[in-house]
């Protein structure tokens, strides 16, 4: 038996633990956002929090990875267990989850390099880490959508369930009450 919800519980506890560790262990945990030196009333800059974040790069990497693994694990709950191709869909979801995690890891390395540079080259329209974020982390989960579309009749709406769901009840209790 592969009980996704037990894994989800473990991941939630891990996220909770990491948040408590960050809130109590990071030296800049209670630093408020820094105001812009010129446009004081409406803009903020990275300031001390941004400088502190790079010191805790490892923790950020672990936290982000656990969040992405949690999101990926949640998708597995929605796969119909009566499907004969259940193992195959699970493999596909985990494979895309791995790409998703690797994209986040790439963004983290790119950010570490960006933070250490005095001058910043753009990578496309944005600095490299933001390019990873926008074109990677935003778009890679789109592969889950491809899995959903491609495997819809195999893994999500299968057999009798599909027929039942399609046949709307003509005997509506609500209609009867009106």
């Amino acid at each position: 038996m592969f009980d996704v919800t037990r894994w989800l519980l473990a991941l939630c506890l891990m996220i909770g633990g990491l948040l408590i560790y960050a809130a109590t262990g990071f030296e800049h945990a209670h630093v408020s956002s820094a105001v812009h030196p010129v446009f004081v009333s409406t803009m903020e800059v990275g300031g001390a929090r941004g400088e502190g974040d790079i010191i805790h790069w490892n923790e950020g990497l672990v936290f982000g990875t656990v969040v992405i693994v949690t999101l990926t694990a949640t998708l597995l709950i929605g796969v119909d267990s009566s499907s004969s191709g259940i193992k195959r869909i699970r493999c596909w979801i985990l494979a895309v989850g791995l790409v998703y995690v690797l994209t986040f890891v790439a963004m983290m390395f790119s950010w570490r390099e960006y933070a250490s540079q005095a001058t910043h080259e753009l990578w496309g329209p944005f600095p490299a880490p933001v390019t990873w974020m926008v074109f990677g982390i935003w778009l890679v989960p789109g592969l889950f959508t491809l899995i959903y579309v491609a495997g819809f009749h195999t893994w999500f709406v299968v057999g009798k369930v599909q027929e039942d769901a399609c046949s709307d009840s003509s005997e509506s209790t609500i209609e009867r009450t009106n």
Binding site: E44, G46, G50, D53, G60, F63, G64, A115, H120
Partner: peptide, 24 residues
């Protein structure tokens, strides 16, 4: 992006002014 990076590189990093854990 160039204008904003020159002004404050951190605001054009993935975490902006909110910070890493806050954004995640």
């Amino acid at each position: 992006s160039q204008v904003l990076v020159r002004d404050d590189p951190q605001s054009m990093s993935p975490w902006g002014s909110k910070g890493m854990i806050g954004c995640l």
